[in-house]
Design a protein around this nucleic acid. Sequence first.
DNA 1: GTGGTCTAGACCACG
DNA 2: GTGGTCTAGACCACC
Lengths: 131, 131, 131, 131
Amino acid sequence: MFVRVDPGDSTPIYEQIARQIKFAVASGGLRPGDRVLSVREMARRLAINPNTVARAYRDLQAEGILLPQRGLGLVVTVGAPARCRREREAWIRERLVQLVNEARLARIPPHDLRKLFLEIVDSLQSEESLP
Amino acid sequence: MFVRVDPGDSTPIYEQIARQIKFAVASGGLRPGDRVLSVREMARRLAINPNTVARAYRDLQAEGILLPQRGLGLVVTVGAPARCRREREAWIRERLVQLVNEARLARIPPHDLRKLFLEIVDSLQSEESLP
Amino acid sequence: MFVRVDPGDSTPIYEQIARQIKFAVASGGLRPGDRVLSVREMARRLAINPNTVARAYRDLQAEGILLPQRGLGLVVTVGAPARCRREREAWIRERLVQLVNEARLARIPPHDLRKLFLEIVDSLQSEESLP
Amino acid sequence: MFVRVDPGDSTPIYEQIARQIKFAVASGGLRPGDRVLSVREMARRLAINPNTVARAYRDLQAEGILLPQRGLGLVVTVGAPARCRREREAWIRERLVQLVNEARLARIPPHDLRKLFLEIVDSLQSEESLP
DNA sequence: GTGGTCTAGACCACG
DNA sequence: GTGGTCTAGACCACC
C-alpha cells in the first residue's frame, strides 16, 4: 500500500493515515468496493501500534468512507469518491486561507508571498513523478 | 500592546503570544531596547493566567529575543530583529513547502492549486487594513 | 535512573535534573535511543511535582537532547552525545575562567590559588567512588 | 572608585558591589577609616538604582565592615581587614570545592580538570595588570 | 513594582 | 499508559 507516516510530522499518525486513504479515494487510487489492509497488516507494515490504525479506520467508518463487510474486512463505500473529493478541496482551501491569513498578520507583503508561492509550486510540482 | 489571542485556535496560547511578538519585532513594531508588557499586565489584558504569559516570555528569552532587566522587566535584544526576520521568512517558506507538497500527494493539479491560491491571496490581503 | 536533587542547592530543581541528564549523556550513561523515566515516574521517585520534571524535559527537548516518541515517552536523540560533551566542556571551562578571574580581582596570589585548587582536587576526587 | 558591575552576571548587583568592596578592604585598597562613596554618588556612577547600592551598604554594615559616621557617611571599620581577608579565603575555597565537586559529578577526569585549570590560571593571571 | 520557582490539580490528545 | 496545556496560587529575590 501507498500509505506512509512521518513520525516527525506533528499531525497525529491516525490522521495522516486517514487523510492519505481519503486522498487515494479522491484521486481514484482506491475505488468503491476495494478493500483496505487489515488493521494488523497495516500496523505491521508501518511499524506502529495497531490501536493507531484502528483509530484511523474508525474515523473513516464514522465518515462513511469505509464500511465493514462481514468476513472481508473494510471496503470503500460507493459514496466515498464524491465525499473525498469534496473534502480534499475543502481541506486545501482551508489551509490556504489559514496560511495567507497568518502571512498577513506577520505583515509579509502580498507580493512577496505570491512570488514565494509560485517559486515553490513550480519547483516542487515538477520535481519528480509520484511514488 | 497589540497582542491578541484566539482561544479557538489549536496552537497553544503561549505560542500565539510568542509568535506575535516575534513578528512585531520582525516588522519593526518592536525595536531593540523596547520593553514588553509585564507578565501580570499582559495576563490581565488578555484575561489569561500569568503563567501562560510567563511561558511565552521564557521561550523568547531562551531564543535570545528578550533579555531580562533586573526588576524592570523584559526588553527586546539588539540581535532580535535579524533573528525574527529570518525566522518569519523560514516559517512562511516552510509552511508553503509543506502545503504544496501535501497538495501534490493529494494529486491536486498544480494549475488548480495556483488558481485557488491567487484567488485567496487577492481576496484576503486587500480585505481590510490591519488592526 | 540515578538523578538526585538537592533542595538546598540554590540552582533550580529543573536545572539540576536537566544538567544531570546531559552529563549522563555526555559520559555515555545514557545513549541515543534510550528512554528517560516518564515525567510521573521521575517526579514520584524524587518526591517533587511532575510539572518540575516536565519543565526539565521541555528544556531538554528545546535543546535537541530529547525527542518525544508519541505515547511512549522521551528518548535521547542521536545528536545528543556530541552536543552534551561540547556543553559539558564549555560549562566547566566557563566556570573555571570565571573563578580565576574573580580570584584575580580579589587579588589572591596565583600561587595560593594554585595550591588551594590542587589540594582540593586531590582530596575530593579520590574521596569516594561515585554512586 | 574601582567598583564595576556586570549586568550580564547573574549574581545580584548589590552582591557584586558588596563583594568588591570587601575584596578591596582585604587587599588594602580600602583601609580602616576610609570613606566609601555616598549611596547617591555610587548609584549615579554605576547608573543603577540607589536602592541597590543602599542594600549593599546595609549588608556591609550588618557584617561590621562599614560603620556610619555622623555627617561623614560610611567608613571602613578597624576590624574590617581581618574579617575581609578571612571571608575572601573562605569564599574562594568554597567556590573551588563546589566546582571540583560538580566536575566530579560530570565525570570529568581529574587530570583533565587539573590541566584545564592550570592552563587558564596561567593565561589569565599574567594577562594584564589590574585596573 | 518586576520576573522566577514550585506546587497542585484539571483536562486533553495520542497510542 | 505517555506528554502537553492551562489555571490557581504561594513564596522568593531583586530593584
